[in-house]
């Protein structure tokens, strides 16, 4: 902020575009630094991944002299990136689906029906959003060991679904409350059951909220490391995030190979981001604003 304070006062009259030179330069300098800082690690990751170990020793940040693809061969064929990604996707989609179903039912009742204890339920569920998972893991871990749920798809999906459900409920309740009552009543008069109203009227109208849930919750599960480390101990069940930590340990001093692995690991989300950029940005921002 010191940079701001040092900035000279602009003329009092509405400045002409050409007269704002000084502050325009200041603005551009800030943006240039920001863009450089944001992109340099990705640049480093991509360029290094094509170098040989030999080249990396003397050429750390320059462009690679030739495109070495050998690292990619080893990163792909000696490791299980594809398996890790499929596992991560399974846990993410499974838990998001389960959480969305369970939360839609509850949110519909909370938003649109009258019953005792509904305000308490909403308040409790909302306050659970701030509980950090780390305070829950000890009893859950022991319980899962007893029930033989460690390293299973259904056990893991259950945990993740539970962890994202308070947010799902919060978002869906506030969205369901904005739907016009007339539509719901019309459906009821036509003889639909409450479940029919939810399934055939409310859900089809809730696409924006469901997209936000899909993005926010999928990223949460995809990026989680703590739960995945504890509850998935079998090599075949590993997620991508755990895979990355295994991979890092495997190739400690081979920086180009490590970077090739990181490129592989970042591709799924980067590709989705490039395609669905608008949804990512508005989904995550509105998720946070409502959350």
């Amino acid at each position: 902020m010191t940079g701001l304070a040092a900035q000279p006062q602009a003329p009092l009259a509405l400045p002409e575009p050409g007269k704002r030179d000084w502050s325009t330069k200041f603005t551009h300098a800030i943006l240039l630094i920001a863009v450089f800082t944001a992109l340099f690690p990705s640049y480093f990751m991509f360029t290094t991944s094509f170098k040989t170990n030999e080249e990396y020793r003397y050429n750390k940040i320059g462009l690679p002299q030739q495109l070495m693809l050998e690292q990619y061969g080893e990163a792909i064929f000696q490791n299980e990136f594809l398996r890790w990604m499929l596992n991560s996707a399974t846990y993410a989609l499974g838990s998001v689906a389960l959480s969305t179903v369970v939360a839609s039912l509850a949110a519909f009742a909370i938003a649109r029906m009258q019953f005792r204890g509904k305000n308490v339920l909403l308040a409790l569920s909302t306050s659970l959003m701030v509980i950090p998972p780390v305070v829950l893991v000890v009893p859950l871990f022991l319980f899962f060991v007893q029930l033989d749920l460690i390293s299973t798809y259904h056990g893991t999906i259950l945990i993740y679904a539970g962890l994202v459900t308070p947010f799902s409920i919060y978002l869906l309740v506030s969205f369901f409350r904005t739907l016009p009552t007339e539509i719901l009543e019309a459906a009821l008069i036509d003889g639909a059951s409450p479940f029919g109203v939810l399934w055939r009227v409310v859900i089809p109208l809730s696409a924006p909220a469901l997209v936000t849930l899909l993005i926010v919750n999928t990223l949460y599960v995809w990026n989680d490391l703590l739960i995945a480390l504890l509850f998935l101990q079998d090599d075949n069940m590993r997620t991508l995030m755990v895979g990355i930590s295994v991979f890092q340990g495997r190739y400690n001093h081979q920086v180009p190979l490590t970077m090739a692995g990181m490129v592989m690991a970042s591709l799924p989300m980067l590709i989705l981001y490039i395609i669905f950029q608008r949804f990512f940005i508005s989904g995550l921002a509105s998720g946070a604003l409502k959350g």
Partner: peptide, 11 residues
């Protein structure tokens, strides 16, 4: 500027 957030923490 949003790219850093799209990369997962371990990466």
């Amino acid at each position: 500027l949003f790219v850093p957030y799209i990369l997962s923490v371990p990466i």
